[in-house]
Structure formats: structure tokens, C-alpha cells
Amino acid sequence: MPPANSVAPVRTTSFVTRPGWVELAVAVLAALVLYLIGGVIAVRLPDDAPVSPGHVNFLISGLAPLGAFTLAVVVRIRDVRPFGYRWVSPGWLIAGMVIGIVCFGLSWPVSAVFDPLFPGSEDVQESYREAASSTIQSLAVTVVLGGILTPIGEEFLFRGVLANFLLRWAPWAAVTVSAAVFAVAHGINSVMPLAFVIGIATGLLLWSSGSIWPAVAVHMVYNSAGLIYHGTV
């Protein structure tokens, strides 16, 4: 028994501030497997299936990265805060929404420059446009899946895991590299430059605010605006 005047040792728990190599490796491997499984399901979907191919693709684009993010969290850290899951002031969210609108406005001049360099790229987004322009109900489902679920999944993976992992070194390089990986993940087509712009904007917001939610706001506004535009015009 310790003396009466002794001080008991204080127990401390270590807190990981950013995801590391383990989280990155698990996230990359899980994302590849989940995207592959989703792609096989989408390809084998019968032509008379009651769901739109665009809806299926958006569902995969949201669930696959969310699954990878979840596995990256639970493998070791088991805390979402190191991945940028932190509440932030409304001002940051408003800034994210405004930047999302600006990025949507930039989609026309960027497309005008890069579309001729990637002939046939318009077919890449065709299933999404068909899902948005079919019926009002289909547009609503498309916005939920493509304007909400997909941005959450992709931002949690590419910014929550990848960008946060890279931010331990040179922040500007981390923003650029994560944006480049995000762009290439969309395929070598005319979508790639726009995805890079979105990746730069969301990466900068993550770096500046320390939270993933302003980045999610950018992505949600950009995707939703595009889907509503194609569904109503």
C-alpha cells in the first residue's frame, strides 16, 4: 500500500492526430475491392431491372468509399476525429456552399477547354444524366444518391483518409496530391479536370478548417446543382 501522502500515477491515453500508413493501406485495399464488387454488380444488372444504372452507379460511388473509410477507422484508431470528423462553425459550411456554386459555374469554361481533348467523354456521365432527367421521382432519388451520399463517401475517403494522411508533411503538396488522385479516380476523361478543381477546393477547406464538413458542403452543392440542372433543363 502506498504512503498516504503519495500521488497516484496519472494514466494517459495516446491520441492519434492523423491516420497513418495502416489506415491508408486498409482504405485503399478496401476501396479497390468494394468498387470492384460494385462494378461487377452494375455490369450484371439486367436491362429490365427496376432501378436506373445511374442510381446504381451513384450508390456504388457512395457506399464503396464509405465502407473503406469505416474499415480505416476501426482497424486501429477507432475515433473519427483524426479523420476530420469534427463540428465546425456555420461560417465554414457557408463558405463551402459558396465555393461549390463557384465550382459549378466554372464547369462550363473548364468543359469548353477540355472536352475537345477527350472525345467521347460525354458518354461517361450519360447514365447519371438519364437518371436525373427521367422523372421528378427519379431526379429526387438521383439527388439523394449523387448529391448527398456520393459526396459524403468520396470526401470521407479522399479527404478524410488520404488528405489527412498526407497533411502530416507538406500541406500544399497534400492538397495537390489528394486532388490529383481524386481526379484520376474519376477516369481519364473530361471529368478529370473538374474533379481536380473540386479536389483542390475541398482539400484547402479541410486544411484550413480542420474539419471534413466544409469539403462535403462543396461537393454536395456542386453535385446537386449539376444534377438538378441536367434534370430540369
Rank of each mutant, 00 (worst) to 15 (best):
D48Y: 09
G38E: 09
G62H: 10
G20T: 10
G39M: 09
R18S: 13
V33E: 09
E23Y: 11
P65Q: 02
V40Q: 11
V26S: 03
V40I: 15
D48M: 06
A30N: 01
G54T: 06
D48L: 10
V40E: 02
S61K: 04
V40P: 05
W21K: 08
W21A: 10
G67K: 00
L24M: 11
L59T: 08
S52N: 10
L34T: 04
V43G: 07
A27K: 05
D48I: 08
R18Y: 12
N57I: 06
L66I: 06
A42Q: 14
D48H: 14
A30M: 02
L66R: 02
V43C: 01
L63D: 00
H55R: 01
V43F: 15
V26I: 15
V51P: 00
A64I: 00
H55L: 13
D48G: 05
V33M: 14
E23L: 13
L63M: 06
V26F: 12
G39V: 05
L36R: 13
L66A: 06
L63V: 11
S52Y: 04
H55G: 02
R18G: 06
I60V: 15
A64H: 03
G38W: 11
V22R: 15
D47I: 10
P46S: 00
V40N: 06
P65F: 07
G62Y: 07
F58S: 03
S52L: 13
P53A: 11
A31S: 15
L29Y: 02
A42N: 14
R44E: 11
L29G: 15
N57W: 01
W21I: 09
R18K: 12
E23V: 14
P65N: 06
A64E: 02
L36W: 12
L59A: 11
G20C: 12
P50D: 11
L34E: 07
A25Y: 01
L45S: 09
G54P: 07
P46E: 08
P46Q: 04
L36Y: 12
L63A: 07
V51W: 15
V22H: 12
V51C: 01
V40D: 01
Y35G: 00
N57A: 10
R44W: 07
L66F: 07
L36V: 00
P19D: 08
L36P: 01
V28E: 05
G62S: 09
Y35N: 09
I41Q: 05
L34Q: 08
A42R: 09
I41L: 15
G39A: 09
I41G: 04
N57L: 15
P53R: 14
L29K: 03
A49R: 05
G67M: 04
A25L: 14
N57Y: 05
P19K: 12
G54M: 07
L34C: 08
S52F: 03
P19N: 12
L34D: 08
A42K: 09
L24T: 13
V40K: 10
V43T: 15
V26M: 10
V51L: 15
L59V: 04
D48T: 15
A30F: 03
L29S: 13
L24C: 08
L29R: 04
I60K: 02
G20W: 14
V40R: 11
H55Q: 10
L24S: 07
V40G: 06
P50I: 09
L32V: 11
G67R: 03
I37M: 15
V51E: 03
A64Q: 02
G67H: 04
G54S: 07
P19S: 12
A42L: 12
P46G: 01
V56N: 00
L34R: 05
L29M: 13
Y35H: 07
